[in-house]
Amino acid sequence: MSKLLRADFSRLFKNKIFWLGVLFMAGFAAFLLFTNWDYIHRNPDFLLSSDDFVFAGANYAGIVIAIVIGIFVGTDYSNGTIRNKIIIGHSKTAVYLSNLIVCSTAAVIMHLAFIAVIIGCSALGIIGEIVTPAGTMAWVILTSVFAISAMMLFISMIIPKKSAGVVTAMVLSIFMIVIANSVDYRLSAPEYIMPYHVSFMSDDGTEQEVEQPTVENPKYLSGIKREVCQFFHDTLPADQIMQINNAACRADFIPRSCAVIAVTTGAGILIFRKKDLK
């Protein structure tokens, strides 16, 4: 597989779309800081933590990763060059795993471009320091980005048409963000609507107050539904990033992301091995 890796990495580092992705992520970090510039200056005593920006980047990185992986793998299909690898004796499993390693590395480099800009601004004192322990955060982001890459690679390897693969991967990455937002909203809904007072003017012109009783929140998810939603919310990469944005970085996200990588890669290899290449 080292031969495949050598060839694939060489192609990656010559790929214009990949470098555009790196530039876009760095530019996007600068754009986020610029749009928050006004807030940073009006509140000099309150430094925004770098964590907010780092995780915000992870949110959007999925879309860029989907495009870059879709084009990188799709080109191999559309040019027919994936056949050259098989014809000379490389196994389909090795081809898939090599793509996984190369695409995950590409995704990490693109994300690092984003983080580098944030850390640079943090070092200059423009924004606050990173609060989350660096080790935990690095591993959570790394495994999360790897999990996104594995999912996008799965799509790109089972859909041989380049344009269809790119569009499907992009739609999936956007869909995951939308679903993550929606599930986060439902899971954070309170179980009960707390008692509150309603004031109104009575007929005799005096103000009266009525206390509303505590009622069950109809939007609250309970039982098995809640457990299933919570499981996916803790496991899917976009959902993990959503949670990290809202609260703290949790170490248990790491094994969950590893499980996502294992499942998508296992399924991808099985399908790709049985696939009739033309």
Binding site: A7, T75, N79, T81
Partner: peptide
Amino acid sequence: VETLSIYLDMTAEENLKMQYRLL
């Protein structure tokens, strides 16, 4: 096999180098 298997955005030499790496 059937349609050609070459990287269209590479030169002839780059295409051969890619195959050399794969081998």
